[in-house]
């Protein structure tokens, strides 16, 4: 009697899960593909090879690569500092790193406008630099601004993944190596890195996913279509044009990002698989 009820509960829960899974996750993916191809293959190809799309793809890649590099360097340094040493304010520092996770991305974009924008307090400093060096650097409404906003929203991803691993592993091996006279970088390369490599890769994958898909933060700080727009902004511009054609084009460009998302998910699962196998 009890066993039968058990089986009923089991399949009921699996059923609920599948229903949720299909409606919330699978159907949206199919919807993108169907709508992207609504006007046929040729217009799909035209949409994804349009000038604006290519320019947006370029900006997206630039922002993603730079954000990834910055966050990796930061993540490694922060994880090392926070787990290997004890210092005043360590918990505060650890909390501050996580700030971007709980802040609206719109605020991230806004913060850079308030700092480097025309009425921001850093604007005179920037003007001075431009005048003395004869350069023409603009940090808002420009590609560097897009990069800054992307760095902001992805900031904690790498450190977040490595810190727990380093905590769990402890510092004994590094201490032993240091006692035997190993240099800092050698210790990192030979002892720490093998422990964290899968976690590092995992954090980098999450960071990439967020970086190429960021919308709110970048939207606040990027206003020129065809120059500073990223792919999500290009999708927004096409969608907001509102005609049936441009909406189909928006979905065509979206399908590029869906493909990137699927690659990310596959990569993430491979990394997770290997990471688990090592344990």
């Amino acid at each position: 009697m009890k066993e039968r009820r058990e089986i009923i509960v089991k399949w009921m829960l699996i059923g609920i899960s599948f229903l949720f899974f299909i409606i919330m996750l699978v159907l949206p993916l199919l919807e993108v593909i169907v709508r992207a191809l609504a006007d046929g293959w040729d217009s799909y190809c035209n949409a994804i090879s349009a000038d604006h799309t290519l320019s947006a793809l370029k900006v997206t890649l630039i922002a993603t690569v730079i954000a990834l590099a910055v966050n990796t360097v930061f993540g490694l340094a922060a994880a090392w500092a926070l787990t290997k040493f004890d210092f005043f304010g360590r918990n505060v520092l650890s909390t501050l790193i996580d700030i971007p996770f709980s802040i609206s991305p719109v605020i991230a974009g806004l913060a850079f406008i308030m700092t480097f924008g025309r009425s921001g307090w850093m604007a005179p400093v920037l003007d001075w630099i431009n005048q003395t060096l004869g350069t023409d650097i603009a940090l808002v409404f420009s590609v560097p601004g897009v990069v800054l906003a992307t760095i902001f929203v992805t900031f904690p991803f790498v450190s977040r993944e490595i810190i727990p691993i380093l905590y769990a592993q402890g510092s004994d091996e590094e201490e032993a190596a240091a006692l035997m006279g190993a240099k800092g970088f050698t210790i990192f390369r030979k002892i720490t890195f093998p422990h964290i490599k899968w976690g590092l890769l995992y954090g980098m994958i999450l960071c990439t996913a967020r970086a190429f898909g960021e919308f709110g933060a970048v939207y606040a700080i990027s206003k020129t279509r065809g120059e500073t727009f990223t792919l999500p902004l290009e999708i927004d511009a096409l969608y907001m044009t509102g005609s049936a054609d441009s909406i189909t084009q928006a979905f065509a460009v979206s399908s590029l990002l869906v493909a990137m998302a699927v690659v990310i998910l596959i990569g993430k699962n491979i990394v997770e698989y290997y990471g688990r196998k090592r344990k």
């Binding site: 927004d236 869906v258 990310i264």
Partner: peptide, 11 residues
């Protein structure tokens, strides 16, 4: 997490 929010939004 992997799907850009704008894509999720319009879809």
């Amino acid at each position: 997490f992997a799907l850009p929010t704008a894509v999720a939004g319009i879809t």
